[in-house]
């Protein structure tokens, strides 16, 4: 049986929760990623940081998950920050013209302190 779960590390700090998905986020793994993001948002952190440093590849399924997270964050008053996008992942944000709608910073430290 294939495993479609996406490993996601969770680091809860005062004032911020940091999610660190690892691996490819495509149609098979986006549902698992979405579940982890919703769980983190349900805790209503002041800031939700998604550390993309270990995401090697993402397609529009992953983008859709992040767009949904952004819309939920706005509704729930959670500040969503993305960080450490590799050039390939950054490129898909730009192709989809989504980079302008997200707060994207270079590092986890930047995201926590931003």
């Amino acid at each position: 049986m294939q495993d479609n779960s996406l490993p996601v590390d969770i680091d809860r700090r005062p004032g911020a929760t940091i999610l660190s998905p690892r691996g490819d986020v495509d149609m098979s793994r986006a549902p698992s990623f979405r579940e982890r993001v919703r769980e983190a948002q349900a805790g209503r952190p002041a800031r939700l940081v998604i550390d993309m440093g270990a995401v090697e590849y993402m397609d529009s399924s992953g983008l859709a998950t992040l767009v949904e997270a952004m819309r939920n964050a706005r509704t729930e008053g959670v500040e969503l920050v993305l960080c450490a996008l590799n050039p390939r992942v950054k490129a898909i944000f730009e192709i989809a013209r989504l980079h302008q709608f997200f707060r994207i910073v270079p590092t986890v430290a930047d995201a926590v302190e931003a």
């Binding site: 529009s60 952004m70 192709i95 989809a96 013209r97």
Partner: peptide, 18 residues
């Protein structure tokens, strides 16, 4: 249209773009 970010519907745009 890409001016309003919504989940989904990006696949065809991405294909045509690249």
């Amino acid at each position: 249209a890409l001016d309003d970010p919504k989940p989904g519907g990006l696949g065809v745009h991405i294909i045509r773009e690249v």
